[in-house]
Design a binder for these strands. Structure first.
Lengths: 189, 189
DNA sequence: TAGCTTGTTGACCGTTGCTCAGCAAGCCGA
DNA sequence: TCGGCTTGCTGAGCAACGGTCAACAAGCTA
């Protein structure tokens, strides 16, 4: 019935499938993304998807990891800026990110973090990397306690910025200052 | 093949099924809980479960709501204590709760919050109620900004306490003081 | 005992994740 | 041009799961 798909190189096909997943992520909770739908959009048979990804889980983690890569790259310190301003820049970019991709971001954070434990693992992993980046930007030593506080601060920030975008109860600058002040206070001890 | 189940009143049966769900929650992410398994444990056929709950989703939300009820009841202010100490008591009980039911709590928070949007709704709802309780205990007026900050503080607390239980990087008292201090500072403005 | 209510079941269906044998497109050496 | 190799790709088919439906039967009441 359906005409066979155009033949592609393995790398191309894989990339295409991940790209489709990324495209669907903002509108669909990860776990509601069916293999059928993805295959249909790619114009290939389900079987082919399983040729590239061992399981649905495998595919999900690949997509989630790709999403995490985009975020991480966006937040990464900009070389050339003085070290002292790196942290401020990251915070600024994070707020901007959530402002721009609110739904997509929530889909990633909430959708990915739960559901499948494997996918959650990718999320945790990304978070640890963000903690690393932040500690480096702040030029602070890396001990267990600081990491904990920083992770919790991320949770605070994630939550506050998301709800602030939905209902701005303060000036943007005030929000950033509040987050920055909180971070300084938590880490000074 | 299987002998028919003992006949029960509608209320009993419903309660039993929800209880089984609560029992399974700590060890199983909500969405991996299959109807088959629940029915098997209850010693009934799948069909009967669908007689009491319109859909799997419906059953999940019922279980999640039951879990939320238990938490809310545990945190609720103890009548008789002076108003000023209510907030401290709630915080204390929250830390104790996570210490005791760590896995179950994480299953609820992470598992429930994500995955199914309907289940997430129950979680949000519970959170709003906790915010209400906290504002009342603190005897603070209820405005949008304060609610936002309080919700974010909950996210911070949830995250920090969970990771602190896993790896205690400070004294218990220090943890509670830190959380309390942070809350005061956030809400004083 | 007849009859009503309602707790309960098994047979059945569509979807979805996943497997497997095999087709065919493109490339290569002769 | 032909044969053969690699490998992208498909369709049939299976098991598990969510969900439906007609019908059975336990227990109450007249």
């Amino acid at each position: 019935m359906t005409s066979p798909a155009r033949r592609r190189s393995a790398g191309d096909r894989r990339a295409q499938l991940v790209a489709i997943g990324l495209e669907l992520l903002p509108t669909t909770p990860v776990q509601e993304l069916t293999i059928d739908e993805v295959a249909r959009r790619a114009g290939i048979s389900r079987s082919l998807l399983f040729h590239y990804f061992a399981s649905k889980r495998d595919y999900y983690t690949a997509v989630t990891r790709a999403a995490a890569d985009v975020l991480r790259e966006h937040l990464a310190p900009r070389p050339g800026l003085p070290a002292g301003e790196q942290a401020a820049g990251m915070l600024e970019r994070y707020v901007g990110w959530v402002e721009t991709y609110r739904d997509a971001h929530l889909s990633f954070v909430r959708g990915a973090a739960a559901g499948d434990p494997w996918v959650a693992e990718v999320y945790e992993e990304t978070r640890e990397q963000l903690v690393d980046m932040a500690l480096a930007a702040l030029e602070l030593p890396d001990d267990a306690r600081r990491r904990q506080l920083l992770r919790a601060w991320f949770a605070f920030t994630e939550d506050l910025v998301s709800s602030w975008v939905r209902e701005p109860t303060m000036e943007r600058g005030e929000l950033v200052d509040l987050l920055r002040g909180l971070l300084d206070r938590l880490l000074e001890s």
